[in-house]
């Protein structure tokens, strides 16, 4: 990944920064310029640190950059403030996952760009 693209997303990837529409109150992650309701005024907020698994899978055939991590778990998590996020769920076996289980977000390495490129960090989830 070219480093400007990585750098630009840091507030979301590192700190789960989101935007809340001042009109309808919906929290957008990542932040948007226009809300689904049409309004354009937002205030900065964050995705809750904990959430619930809405659906999950285990990726066994991975893109090249993720092959070393396979098999790895992916879930759609609904954070406590309603935001839905696709995230890896790590430090657990596939059998430990279930719809409705609680998770919390942690800071992890997502993948490395080969031996010489940048190291991509961001959020993942672990079971609580």
């Amino acid at each position: 990944m070219p480093s400007p693209r990585y750098w630009r997303e840091m507030p979301q990837r590192y700190r789960l920064e989101a935007s809340q529409c001042t009109e309808c109150g919906k929290v957008s992650f990542p932040p948007r310029i226009v809300c689904g309701c049409g309004a354009r005024d937002f205030k900065k907020t964050n995705v809750s640190e904990t959430g619930t698994i809405v659906s999950y899978t285990t990726i066994r055939v991975a893109p090249d950059a993720f092959v070393i991590q396979a098999p790895y778990n992916i879930a759609i998590v609904e954070a406590d403030n309603g935001v839905r996020i696709t995230t890896q769920v790590v430090d657990c076996a596939p059998e430990e996952l279930a719809i409705g289980k609680k998770v919390k977000f942690v800071f992890r390495k997502l993948y490395e760009e080969g031996h010489c490129g940048i190291i991509n960090y961001g959020y993942k989830a672990v079971l609580v």
Partner: peptide, 15 residues
């Protein structure tokens, strides 16, 4: 926000 986490298409349909 999907691919960055290692999502694949089989993975999305599995979800």
């Amino acid at each position: 926000y999907e691919v960055y986490q290692g999502v694949t298409f089989p993975g999305l349909y599995a979800l």
